[in-house]
Every structure is written in C-alpha cells, then in structure tokens.
Design a protein around this nucleic acid. Sequence first.
RNA 1: GGUCGUUUGGCCGAGUGGCUAGGCUCAGGUCUGCAAAACCUGCUACUCCGGUUCGAAUCCGGAAGCGACCUCCA
Length: 488
Amino acid sequence: MQPLLIYNTLTHQKELFKPLTADHVGMYVCGPTVYGDGHLGHARPAITFDILFRYLQHIGYKVRYVRNITDVGHLEHDADDGEDKIAKKARIEQLEPMEVAQYYTNRYHVAMDRLNVLRPSIEPHASGHILEQIELVQALLDKGFAYESNGSVYFDVRKYHEATKKYGILSGRVMDEMLSTTRELDGQSEKRETQDFALWKKASPEHIMRWNSPWSVGFPGWHTECTAMGTKYLGETFDIHGGGMDLMFPHHESEIAQQTALTGHGPCRYWMHNNMITINGQKMGKSLGNFITLDEFFTGSHALLAQAYSPMTIRFFILQAHYRSTVDFSNEALQAAEKGYYRLMQAYKTLKNLAASKSSSIAVNDYMQKCYDAMNDDMNTPIVISHLFEMAKVINTVNDKKATLTQDDIDAMKVVFDTFVFGVMGLKDESSVDNSALIDGLMSMVLEMRATAKANKDWATSDKIRDALSALGVTVKDGKDGAVWEIR
RNA sequence: GGUCGUUUGGCCGAGUGGCUAGGCUCAGGUCUGCAAAACCUGCUACUCCGGUUCGAAUCCGGAAGCGACCUCCA
C-alpha cells in the first residue's frame, strides 16, 4: 500500500492516511444542491474527490464513497424568509418541487459523466432521509444540546461549546469571544443566541416541501442531512469528509458539533477541503451571479468564453492546479490547458507506435514511482502532470530518431500513462468521438480531387484514388451528376 | 473587525534552505517544397521591510495587496 499523505484541515498539516478499518475507506463528500445547473465551481470538488476515490481504489483500498444530493433544507442565504431553495424555484416555475430536483439531478449527472467523474458508491437524497434526520434532532434534544422554539428546533451552540470547548475547532472561530460579546436577541427571535443553527424548521404556510415531525410540519435544517446520512452509511466515525472550503463554516463546523454532542467525537478523522475557482479574482458562485455553467463551457455559449472548451480540457485545467489552491478562470489559461492536454494525448498515440531499439540511449527514470510520490504528497496532480510532460518529451525525441528506447522501457511508459493519465486522473482521449461530419468532409474533398484528375484526363490518378478507397471499404460510383460513395 | 488562506517569470502554475519544475506565449535555430508538428536555444521569477544562516523565494517577525467564510438576516 502506498504511503498517502493528505492535508487535514482539522490539524492544518499533512498526515499519513490510515483508515479506521484495514484496507477499507469510508468517504463522504458534500454534493450539489439541485436547484440549478452545475457550474465550474461544482466541477472542482467533484473532480478533486473523484481523483481521491480513484487513487484510493488504485492503491488497493475498498472504498465506500458517499456523495449526497441536497434536495431539501438548504436555506437560501439571502432569502428574506428562510424559504427553501428548491421550493422557491419550484413555485416560480409552477413545477412540483421534486420535479425540479430530479431535473437538475439528471443534468448534474450528465455533466459529471462528460467530465468522466465516476458515480459515487452511494448517492443519498436528503429528502429520502427525513426520518433519520428527525431521529438525529430528537437525539440532540434528549441530550440537552437542542431546544424547541415555536415548532422549530435549534442547536444550542453556547451549551455545546461550554461543555466541549469545541465549537470552532475546524474553522478557527473564537467562540468564547463571540458568545461573550453577543448582544441580546430581541424578543422576536426564536433563537437564544445568534449563532444557534436550525435543526428543524417549522414550515410557513406557503412552504411546499414539508414533512411531519414531533415538533411541527416542517423541514430539516441545513446541517442535519450530512450528519444523518454520513452516520447511516459510513458509521459513527468514518475516514474522510470532503467538500469545498466555503462549506467549512458553518456547515462542517456544525456537522462536527452535532456529532460530537451525540457521541463525544467528530464524524471523521480527516477533513479535506478543495479551494475555490475564481473569475476575475472573485469566487464563482450562484449567489454572485458570475458563474458559467458547465454546459456553457462545453458549447462556448457564454459572453466571457472565447470558444468552447471540451470536458477533458476543463478536467485537465482543474488538475493542473493543486486542489488546495485557488484557480482563476481565464480564456488564456483554458487555451493553454487545451494545448497541453492535446500534447499529452498526442504523445500517448506516438508512444503506442514507437519503434523499439536494442538499447535505451536515454535513461527512463522511474516515472512510475515519481508519479506515485507526487500523488502520495497530498494528491499533487500538477507534479504528476509535469512528469508526464517530461515523458512526452522523451517520447517525441525517440520518435524523431534522436534517441532510442528498448521495448521494455516503452512498455513501462505505457503502463505509467495507462495508470496515471487514464486511471488515476481519469482523463480520456476525446479525439475519436463522433467524426461522421469529418468523414463526409474528407470524402467530398477526395472525390473533388478525383473529379479534377478526371477532367484533366489523368486516369492514373483518378483510378488510384478509386482503388485506394475500395481497399478501405469505400465504394465510389460515378454517375451523370458526379460521384457518390458508400461504405460497404 | 474576526478566522482561514494566498502573493512566484508575458500568462497559468509546482516547489525544496544552497543544485533545471512543468505547460502556454514570444524570439532565434534544426528539420521541411510551404505550413504544421517535433526537437534545440534564448528571455527567467519568487509583494515589501527587517531578522536567523556561510547561504533563503524556501525558516522567524512585521507591513501591504488579494480572496473565502464570518460579523447583519434563516
């Protein structure tokens, strides 16, 4: 088993990964809220943890990867009334809420498939786990870390923090100070403290998504779904919890609080957070209105895009930066990624047809181990890619007959490409997809050249073209109005 | 105001106390009927100010810029 170091947000350092159960890994990643199309920001965590998922499996772990679909209970930050995002959108569009959720879930899946993001082992829906969430809320009430107020239930942050001194351990928030300086809430609020968060919300009359509970007809709070579903499918403690950095507070901090209040310990051992994608230096996000959807990238249909960018270009672009760094979007950077990706794919094709020699004139370093080393160092995909480019240079040099490689060395390089480019990093060659339009174009061009030859009575050339096409399985039929062709 | 993070060459983006990251762009060259590709060469950086050190972009302290989250509201 490879010694994998991963950066743990909880301890602020890289730690050697050791699973709770030998050879098995339980991993939970916060998935999308399905109330809109996925944008580039959604691709980052999906791809980041897809790499981790692939790599853990590659080095021999059996992985259960849980990534949820948030289809209820994610409250809108800028909403006046705490209305559920799904419900709001649904009412505007006059659709059943679940219809909206399903629609965007389907579209999310298509986009992820195109990005070659593997489906997780379990993809639980929050709406399918209302009972588990109610049980969670009840357990917190029983433990005394939550209180009911007017049909809603809130987590008692002050009580929790005084008992454990742990609210803020992930995000670095200084709770002692926040709690002592908090001013009194006015009588209108249901909450005792401003930082208390909702576990269960009583539904307002116009709120469409609602479920029965011991406290009111309502819906679960923002943070309960991940705790409930993570516990259900991965246990009281699991190995890795991932998500975007923007979820660190309050979402993940609150997950820790909920689990710690119940069990005395947090939900997982390693917290991993991917950084944001920025556009002109600003976070790309739904709420900021500056996002570009994945479909828009694939088709180039957005004012900021100079051209369309293929799914693999997007994937490569994201992998060229370390997952904990911010990445700024720009056409220039994307075009550079596109060219670099093409160069890598070309090198692989060249490698497959490379002629072997009796000896290698250049030392083929241990690229395999170098790539493992880079991956083991907190998933340093940029370094993996740099090694692959070095290999590309070697391949091209040999192809130019300026160096030689033995068959063993060539085979070894193929294994590295297969393992890291296509396996671990999940890239794939896009060039061979649907080229019927290309064939049509090529055929009309070839037949036009043949027509020119015929017009010049250059029968040798025109026959040579017809025979060559025939050998490829293409029949040319000369008619009055020119030639037509068909593939036998 | 708080917390976390970040500041590298024309652009993107890694990184270790001393030794070439890599990609893209640009210029010159090899090759080539032309072009493209490939290869070679060049341009060459580490926000600022102090400190530690024989030596720091890399460690420590300070400042500034930038970003995310929070501080208001569920």
